[in-house]
């Protein structure tokens, strides 16, 4: 639960960093839309997580009061925005995964989670189509955009392995019908990404490097800077209401 909440939250934060910096006004609006959808999803998931872990923590406590080692988002979503191609490729890789996940979670035995997933599924469908359209435009646009997009793909691809990993908590959740088996989402993801890469004239990267650790709170160095910026004001006024 917390994993998905953190994924949505961290990616939302990264996308929000684009505000007033996008290549066109329309894209400024579109990226913020996606960021707002993801933030909404994260908030609903934190609320549910607080009930499940029995702590009754507020959404703000999850986001502003946890340290790096407590965040369990995947490494892909915390990667920095880079150029527009990097942001689009990151969105493509993650939202395609998220779409499969939400599709599966709509059937979850946890009714609240199923409802959150169903609503998110509609939103993520749009995110996927936004990312696919841009991947094709950039991949099959100019020579420069093609190179930039292939470079982004090569850089981000290794981080996709982590999306489909299981650890000790996954099997029991899957057996209870609460969670989806990560590996089972892989074939559809791979096929879907395959068609868009072909249309975009991009090459699927070949790499054996498979960085991982986000789910155990082992993040990349830049993640700490993101949290420092995000958390400092909230933490500077303990107990204050905003």
């Amino acid at each position: 639960m917390l994993r998905l909440a953190d994924d949505c939250f961290v990616l939302s934060h990264r996308l929000a960093e684009w505000s007033s910096r996008a290549p066109t006004l329309e894209e400024d609006v579109a990226l913020t839309n996606i960021a707002l959808d993801l933030l909404g999803q994260a908030r609903r998931l934190y609320e549910h997580a607080a009930r499940l872990d029995g702590t009754g923590r507020s959404e703000d406590e999850y986001v502003f009061m946890r340290d790096e080692r407590d965040f369990v988002n995947c490494l892909l979503v915390e990667q920095e925005n880079g150029d527009f191609a990097t942001t689009i490729v990151r969105e493509l890789l993650f939202s395609t995964y998220q779409l499969g996940l939400c599709g599966a979670l709509r059937e979850s035995a946890d009714a609240t989670l199923a409802a959150v997933a169903a609503k998110a599924h509609t939103e993520v469908t749009y995110h996927v189509s936004h990312a696919r359209q841009w991947t094709v435009r950039l991949g099959d646009g100019t020579a420069e955009s093609h190179i930039r997009t292939q470079t982004a793909l090569d850089a981000l691809w290794p981080y996709t392995h982590e999306l489909f990993e299981s650890d000790d908590v996954t099997p029991s959740l899957v057996a209870d019908g609460v969670a989806a088996a990560p590996a089972a989402l892989m074939p559809e993801w791979s096929a879907s990404i395959g068609t868009v890469l072909a249309e975009a004239t991009l090459e699927r990267p070949e790499t054996t490097w498979a960085p991982s650790g986000g789910r155990r709170g082992l993040h990349t160095e830049r993640f700490g800077y993101m949290l420092a910026e995000m958390q400092h004001l909230h933490r500077a006024h303990p107990g204050a209401r905003w």
């Binding site: 929000a16 960093e17 609006v29 707002l36 933030l39 959404e59 400092h232 004001l233 905003w242």
Partner: peptide
């Protein structure tokens, strides 16, 4: 990126988006 609560952050993002 520094909004002190998620509620305020969502409001601010939506506002800046309105201006666009």
């Amino acid at each position: 990126t520094r909004a002190p609560s998620l509620r305020r952050k969502a409001i601010l993002m939506a506002k800046v988006q309105d201006e666009a």
